[in-house]
Design a protein around this nucleic acid. Structure first.
Lengths: 187, 187
DNA sequence: TTGAAAAACAAACGATCGTTTGCTTTATAG
DNA sequence: CTATAAAGCAAACGATCGTTTGTTTTTCAA
């Protein structure tokens, strides 16, 4: 039921998905949904919560398997992209549906989003970046590029989410890195 | 009237905006809209077209004032971001509303989007990039980062669109550049 | 096996949706 | 000034929306 809602919210958006659509996808009648959720907004909030859980869990688990700050970030990004593009419909809703679109639940949704943004704030904070690199811009740029893939990624394409994430991180890593690690990588 | 529609589509999305909302914002009655547009989808297509025109015109004009490939791209990105974040409601619709959300008009909308993606394809093609840099990833990453700003940019913040665009481009420029221009910049 | 709680059904409520129709107002060319 | 076309008004159409209500089915512990 949550899965059906997530799939439709991710595909069509929140407003364009009716409770009847969701009910049909879940093989139920519209009214039955209201035994589990008091309103459409609550259903969205539940999907959102599951989405945050999916992404944060995947990214965090991947990061924890690494020790080097750059490796940790890369692992998190790979997991993030694989989750969003392949594994989880609920995760896609995080990208597709924005809190402001549902004013009544905006506060709760923003709080949930913050949970996963904090993860990246921490990962970026640990990077040995050159002094003139703005970490906020770095983080927002990375997340923007990653999340935007949802709009052009095709399963049929040659590139896997893993390859895409790594390629993106390599582009950002270059000059942003400290001189010391630059030296090391350049031999 | 187009402006009213653009503002609402950008703020709330396509499905969440009713013809009555648009009519009220344009100080008209709902039925009157249909003298100018046969359907809601046609109204969106018109807004989309104006949005593409705004972005492409601004970016192209800015790029033409420069000769160096990197300067041309930077100028285009600055103009792009200023248009999207400040000047044009219609431009925001391009980012907010995706073709797949309106199946009946998807083909036309995709065609319009392609027009502005081609501009960036050309700008990126002209860059003196290192051989191991994938230009497609470069372009998609840049556009993703730029367009994602719509979701976190605040007018009240300290950074102007111009500053944001330049900072982002500087991060991407570093290692992606050829060795020759690296040398030049590093003295 | 029975009885109560959980879950789903069946049917409808008022509200709002995109759109249409017929008439009136406004603008403009001769 | 007047005729004609462009633009907008007023009112409503059927469809669909989120949601509610009362009843029936299913589940499962005692």
């Amino acid at each position: 039921m949550l899965e059906a809602a997530a799939r439709l919210f991710a595909q069509r958006g929140y407003a364009a998905t009716s409770m009847r659509d969701i009910a049909q996808a879940a093989s139920m009648l519209p009214g039955s949904l209201y035994y589990h959720f008091a309103a459409k907004e609550d259903l969205l909030a539940a999907v959102y919560e599951a989405g945050v859980r999916d992404i944060v869990a995947a990214a965090q688990a991947a990061a924890e398997r690494q020790t080097d700050p750059w490796d940790r970030l890369e692992a998190a990004c790979v997991a993030h992209l694989e989750t969003v593009l392949r594994r989880s419909d609920t995760a896609q809703v995080l990208i597709r549906v924005l809190p402001e679109q549902v004013p009544a639940a905006a506060a709760r949704l923003k709080q949930l989003r913050a949970e996963y943004e904090d993860l990246y704030r921490a990962l970026v904070a640990a990077l040995p970046l050159a002094a003139d690199v703005d970490r906020r811009t770095f983080r927002l740029m990375l997340l923007g590029a990653l999340n935007w893939t949802r709009f052009w990624y095709r399963e049929s394409g040659a590139d896997t989410p893993r390859v895409i994430a790594r390629r993106m991180l390599r582009m950002l890593r270059a000059r942003s890195d400290t001189a010391r690690s630059m030296e090391k990588r350049h031999g």
